[in-house]
Write a protein that binds this DNA or RNA. Structure first.
Length: 831
RNA sequence: GCCGAAGUGGCGGAACUGGCAGACGCGCACGACUCAAAAUCGUGUACCCGGAAGGGUAUGAGGGUUCAAUUCCCUCCUUCGGCACCA
């Protein structure tokens, strides 16, 4: 017997599998398909266990499905556009393209060393022109379908570098630029958006999806649907009317402020209005004597990070604009304030404040001496007094001070109020979402250019589809200002208007990389296809994705975008079916040995290369499956590898080392028992694969190894039963450790390849126990164990229990009060 | 603050319809082999009392339901993740 040397057998088999095309996935109508997708890695260059951890177990499961008769597609690719490539370029003077593709070469080599069943012919790279050509095509389709539009939106901007900053490039409490430490300012730019909100309701429906409850809850909260009403409040433009008789109708107003409220029933209790400091009407409603104060407040609000502005325990602040609106339900004049607790990004950016029944409004009103008016009297409570109540009260009870609603219950008042505002023409029932439209413009170079052209005469028009891809120029200057190279390029911007043929300009913004990753599962279907984003017959056979694996951190962004994308394309007739991915499973995160997130700056990154070189990919694959609950993850431990490495050496020895008979005469080999243990393990392992419980798959195989080694020593070696056990063992091992399984399969004279073999069938009869050991408790405490035939009746078990010496001792001659025989699993005697 | 996940030996974890808590592995200790080391093999390894037989206590803390609770219910604590004044 030679030694187990993974460094020799692993590259050998990887080469052979590649040469034989063992993992090529092709349409085969005779077999059921299984599309197993694992989230594509970003080309950061440092492939570590954060990449292996989701992929190696996913690969094992894909292999398991293949052995179960499925035609399995398990593709891989690279998410190659994005900010880190530009940062590397600026820092080290390497072109982003060069940096990215060098990283891909390295990552590809590392991924190959894992021995996964990736079909490399289907590799897709989002930065390839042949890929982003179709990303651009999808943009145009969304634009034509009316789902893309432009609007002004603020970005974080460094005035010194003259560049837009991503959130991660803004550091510290003073919000400074990561490069030059200049404080960041907000800048309004016109940018492209997708109407994700048009699909908000549909995205809340998870019917038919086998997705974790956790993710569904996260998405539901992210979409944040709330039902209420929009109500228009007229602005009083003539200040002399502010103090006039409220019963007189004021017709002097030049504009309306719309608020969204989830409690239209409390409209009569609104005593002030609050606008977000960024609200477009702030300047208009502000009176001259308040202007300086309002401007100062706006400036400090704009300087704050969302996080500071939104701190829960922060004291409410705001300033009065001097302006007033009319409450349209009762004609009252109410003052307009601005406050940073109202956000422009949610609802209409304006609220009606009802301090008696909303705690935030209450705190604000008390601080600034604004009236608190009770409009709901909770049942069974002393009549409330707005002037003295210590806190707002929950809105359930009977309506008071509410015009026509007075006397109705608060439950009915909601609908009555909506009806009232609709009849008066001052508002309507409305649904609002926390979900915002998807901002896809990036003021960056290393991304897919947005294929739009601006003509002074014809406006914005898409590049004709025949002219795609709209190529990213390579000859860009990397100026230390950090300004977008596309803007600085001498000629790139120049274009012909697709409508009139006149001089026009290209869009210089590029697309959010989430756009590229919203459809990569479609590009895998036919990455070389040049007549469309994918080939129809491939789509018809493989889609939808059956199993999608990846990190929980993508629950709200990527996984909502890709669902939106699929649904929008479906409405255009490009895709089919309600959802792109039927089943989702999330793995946890592998942390550094210090328990912190792996990162270069912390210096706790563990790369797989050295460990593969030392112990082999199989031992590492097994460790990643064995050492953690997959959905939890945990800190890396360098010692664990000894365990799986030792296990594989023992498997090697068990299978290959011949033994002379009679090594252990004392424990005769029990054929029936060997077979039973094999099929019991098979049953467990099969179930665990189905349920993504990888750690117990490996521990089950370790246990069976221990049993088989004992049987071997007892004389099983060489018998037909032994050979059958080895056969099943290797098949179970194959998805976990594909190289050693193939090697042992060959060395025991079996037919190439183990990876095209069928998963063994569980023999229920063989797995069944003939005798069972039943623990016996007296008053819930374990006192004895009895052995009975597996088909013993409850009466027989009871009799055997009472005959036990240990039990008699604890009964002390007294008759038992109750004897419980629990499902033939346990006996409990109550004295 | 809200939402979610999770608290089990020195460590990772197991216990899959409420039924033997600690499988499997790491680490550690002792032993075999060896001139020695590594590798390998064997034995032991929750805690407390006891020489042993045996007994007691234990699944974050406290309470409840039950013959029986890591598992179900209530209250609280801790850790991690996400969201964050959502009108």
């Amino acid at each position: 017997m030679s030694d187990y040397i993974p460094q020799e057998i692993e590259p050998k088999w990887q080469k052979k599998w590649e040469a034989d095309g063992l993992y090529r996935a092709a349409i085969d109508e005779s077999r059921p398909k299984h599309y197993a997708l694992t989230m594509l890695p970003y080309t950061s260059g440092d492939l570590h266990f954060g990449h292996w951890y989701p992929m190696a177990p996913s690969d094992a499961r894909a292999r398991f499905m293949r052995m179960n008769g499925f035609n399995v597609l398990f593709p891989i690719g690279f998410d190659a556009f994005g900010l880190p490539a530009e940062n590397a370029a600026i820092k080290r003077g390497i072109h982003p393209k060069k940096w990215t593709y060098a990283n891909i070469d390295n990552m590809r080599r590392q991924l190959r060393s894992m021995g996964a069943m990736f079909d490399w012919r289907r590799e897709a790279i989002s930065a390839d022109p042949e890929y982003y050509r179709w990303t651009q095509w999808f943009f145009i389709q969304l634009y034509k379908y009316g789902l893309a539009y432009r609007k002004m939106s603020p970005v974080d901007f460094c005035p010194n570098c003259n560049t837009t900053l991503a959130r991660e490039q803004v550091w510290g409490e003073d919000r400074h630029c990561e490069r030059c430490e200049t404080p960041v300012i907000k800048k309004d730019l016109e940018q492209w958006f997708f109407k994700t909100t048009a699909y908000a309701d549909e995205l809340l429906n998870y019917e038919g999806m086998d997705w974790p409850e956790r993710v569904r809850v996260l998405q539901t909260n992210w979409i944040g649907r709330s039902v209420g009403a929009e109500v228009q409040f007229p602005v009083i433009s003539d200040q002399s009317l502010v103090n006039s008789d409220p019963s007189k109708v004021i017709t002097d107003h030049s504009s309306l402020i719309t608020v969204f409220t989830t409690r239209p029933d409390t409209l009569w209790g609104a005593t002030f209005m609050v606008l977000a400091p960024e609200h477009p009407l702030v300047d208009k409603v502000t009176m001259p004597e308040h202007r300086a104060e309002v401007e100062a407040y706006k400036t400090q609000a704009a300087r704050q990070a969302d996080i500071d502005r939104e701190a829960a325990d922060k004291e409410k602040t705001g300033v009065f604009t001097g302006g007033h609106v009319v409450n349209p339900v009762n004609g009252e004049r109410i003052p307009i304030w601005i406050a940073d607790y109202v956000l422009m990004t949610y609802g209409t950016g304006a609220i009606m404040a009802v301090p008696a029944h909303d705690q935030r409004d209450f705190e604000f009103a008390r601080k600034y001496g604004i009236e608190v008016r009770v409009v709901i009297q909770p049942d069974g409570m002393d009549p409330l007094d707005g002037a003295t109540m210590p806190a707002s009260v929950p809105a359930s009870g009977t309506m008071v001070n509410s015009g026509p609603l007075t006397g109705t219950s608060a439950d009915e008042a909601f609908h009555a109020a909506v009806k009232f505002v609709e009849q008066k023409g001052i508002g309507r029932g409305a649904v609002n979402y926390k979900l915002r439209d998807w901002l896809i413009s990036r003021q960056r170079y290393w991304g897919a250019p947005i294929p739009m052209i601006l003509c002074a005469k014809c406006g914005w028009n898409p590049l004709p589809e025949a002219d795609l891809p709209m190529l990213l120029p390579d000859d860009v200057e990397w100026l230390p200002t950090g300004q977008s190279p596309l803007k600085l390029h001498p000629t790139w911007k120049q274009a012909k208007c697709p409508v009139c043929g006149g001089e026009a300009e290209r869009e210089t913004d590029t697309m959010d990389t989430f756009m590229c990753s919203s459809w990569y599962h479609l590009r895998y279907l036919s990455p070389q296809y040049d007549k469309g984003p994918f080939e129809q017959k491939e789509y018809d056979y493989w889609m939808p994705v059956d199993t999608y694996t990846g990190g929980i951190e993508h629950a709200t962004m990527h996984l909502i975008y890709t669902r939106f994308f699929h649904k929008a394309l479906r409405d255009m007739g490009i895709t089919e079916g309600p959802e792109p991915m039927l089943q989702l499973r999330n793995q946890g995160m592998i942390l550094g040995e210090d328990g912190e997130k792996m990162s270069k700056s912390r210096g706790n990154v563990v790369a797989p290369d050295a460990l593969v070189a030392q112990h082999g990919a199989d031992a590492l694959r097994a460790l990643l499956m064995f050492a953690y609950r997959w959905q939890d993850g945990g800190p890396w431990s360098s010692q664990g590898i000894e365990g799986t490495s030792r296990w594989l050496r023992r498997v090697w020895t068990m299978v290959l080392e011949s033994v002379s008979m009679g090594k252990s005469e004392t424990r005769p080999y029990d054929e029936r028992n060997l077979r039973r243990r094999v099929h019991q393990t098979l049953k467990r392992v099969t179930r665990d694969f189905q349920q993504f419980e990888f750690n117990t798959i490996v521990s089950g195989l370790m246990e069976l190894l221990n049993d088989m080694v004992k049987a071997k020593e007892a004389g099983a070696y060489g018998t037909p039963e032994w050979n059958g056990a080895v056969d099943i063992y290797l098949r179970m091992l194959a998805p976990v450790c594909p190289h050693i399984a193939e090697e042992l399969w060959e060395r025991t004279g079996r037919e190439y390849s183990i990876h095209t073999q069928a998963w063994p069938k569980v023999d229920e009869d063989a797995a069944r126990e003939e005798e069972i050991v039943i623990p016996v408790q007296v008053n819930g405490k374990l006192r004895d164990r009895i052995t009975v035939p597996a088909d013993a009746t409850e009466e027989q078990i009871k009799a055997a229990t009472l005959a036990s010496e240990a039990v008699k001792k604890f009964l002390e001659g007294k008759p038992p009060k109750k004897v419980i025989v629990a499902q033939k699993k346990l006996v409990n005697i109550v004295v």
